[in-house]
Write a protein that binds this DNA or RNA. Structure first.
Length: 472
DNA sequence: TTAGGGTTAG
């Protein structure tokens, strides 16, 4: 208890909940004021206050400030460690989660179910299948209860690491399933190209009185329809969602529908749908339609769509997404319009730095564009040269500073894994056409299965073909 | 009395 000058007092128990409120509201300024107050009243030594500060700073996107508080803590319990790990997830640094987990283990603190969920989430994002499997084993060895949180995290982890069968096994073994749990499994089927299985699972869900589909459920279902060419089914579920469940379509549902129609070659109908949307279309929806235009070689429609994207994004590449200009420049190149191609190319802004990761021997190796810091870099270069020779002159390898990270990752995969193990790569951006073509050739010439998870879906390359059927 | 978790369009 702290006595104030006016005789009132502040209990130390007040600070943590107030900081929690700041976390929820992402209110940095008030949070910083509480931090200052806690110093003033000598309460910064309290582990609850410290942990709440770490959570507050990370919720406000201030990982450095969270780390500052964490580093100064004389004692840390499992809640503190897990809060720090979650901070790394919020700041999109999943590899740091693994670092803190190892540090936690060194300090003799055992993980609990919250820690397990954070770890599985990190593994899902990193594509660290073996490490996640080890955590699954740990859950079993420790005879930890498979709570609905751990179960859902496991399902999502297995799906995001390419093992849908393992995800389904976990799903079936769970006695209690929340709507999130069903959604994770549905979405897993959808992005892996198992549309029919997703729809069958949805039917099961509808028959289960303990759970009711929500808006996210329909995003997963419609996504499954679009990735698998189930046009009529997609239309049906889009209507069912509104009629039977009273869910108004969000921009994400429309996004799935536009994608669905676009993939089926129905670009005019897709365009009509965007025009008539009950919510404002964003650049993603238009971008999806633009991809369809590219696939259909519909330049006139692509130009109309680009103008709409420019209305949203602006056309001056001020740090915004300029991927539509990449598509336009390629489309103009295809028809030999050099002038317009040059104009589109000039508007292409700076892309985020690409990286790809691959897990071998229980370790995650991450390769970033323009970095040659890996200890086996020399051998990777040799392998890249070998690939280049084997592929032949048709394929032009870029110069080092433009060497896409998935090429380096696949070279490392060829070096460090053996047939018949698939080479599994996780990439932060969308795979480019050039690399997509290369992966097909490598899968054929090296007789290896290559699985690349890019920021939108899974690509499974085998015998010269990709599971996305060249539409992505 | 006070602190930490799982699903979502391209």
């Amino acid at each position: 208890m702290v006595i104030l000058h006016n005789g009132e007092y502040i209990s130390k128990f007040v600070f943590a909940p107030v900081l929690k409120a700041c976390s929820k509201a992402s209110a940095l300024k008030p949070g910083e004021q509480i931090h200052a107050q806690s110093i003033k009243f000598g309460l910064l030594s309290d582990i609850f206050v410290q942990t709440s500060l770490v959570a507050m700073y990370s919720s406000c996107g201030q990982l450095e400030l969270a780390l500052n508080v964490f580093d100064k803590m004389p004692q840390r319990n499992v809640v503190t460690w897990t809060t720090m790990m979650d901070s790394c997830l919020k700041s999109e640094q999943p590899e740091l989660v693994l670092f803190f987990f190892r540090e936690m283990q060194k300090s003799g603190v055992s993980p609990d179910d919250f820690t397990i969920v954070s770890l599985l989430t990190a593994c899902a994002r990193l594509g660290a299948l073996n490490l996640g499997r080890w955590i699954h084993g740990y859950i079993n060895r420790m005879e930890m209860e498979l709570t609905v949180f751990i179960g859902t995290a496991l399902i999502d982890f297995y799906c995001k690491c390419g093992s849908v069968d393992d995800a389904l096994e976990v799903f079936k073994s769970m006695e209690k399933k929340s709507v999130r749990c069903w959604n994770a499994m549905l979405h897993g089927f959808s992005v892996h190209g198992h549309g029919e299985k997703a729809l069958s699972l949805f039917s099961e869900m509808e028959m289960d009185s303990r759970v009711r589909p929500n808006d996210v459920t329909f995003v997963a279902v419609l996504c499954g329809c679009s990735h698998n060419g189930l046009v009529e089914e997609g239309r049906l579920y889009f209507s069912l969602m509104q009629r039977k469940y009273g869910i108004q379509p969000s921009v994400k549902h429309y996004g799935c529908m536009v994608d669905l129609l676009g993939r089926a070659g129905l670009v005019d109908e897709a365009f009509e749908m965007v025009i008539k949307m009950k919510v404002a279309p964003n650049a993603v929806v238009w971008g999806s339609l633009l991809s369809a235009c590219r696939a259909q070689n519909n330049l006139a429609m692509a130009e109309r769509v680009t103008r709409r994207i420019e209305e949203i994004e602006g056309d001056d590449s001020l740090g915004g997404d300029t991927s539509h200009y990449v598509i336009m420049s390629n489309m103009y190149a295809r028809v030999g319009n050099k002038d317009r191609m040059a104009k589109a190319r000039a508007k292409i802004g700076k892309k985020p730095k690409g990286w790809s990761s691959i897990e071998t021997g229980g370790e995650v190796h991450r390769f970033s564009v323009g970095e040659a810091s890996h200890p086996k870099w020399g051998k990777i270069e040799q392998m890249l040269d070998e690939v280049k020779t084997k592929i032949g002159q048709d394929f032009e390898m870029e110069d080092f500073h433009n060497l896409h990270s998935e090429k380096v990752a696949v070279a490392y995969g060829l070096l460090s894994t053996t047939w018949p193990a698939p080479i599994k790569i996780v990439k932060n951006l969308r795979i480019c056409e050039d690399c997509h073509q290369l992966m097909k050739l490598i899968s054929l010439l090296y007789d290896r299965e290559i699985v690349i998870r890019d920021c939108t879906r899974f690509h499974r390359f085998m015998e010269g073909y990709c599971s996305c059927k060249d539409y992505w």
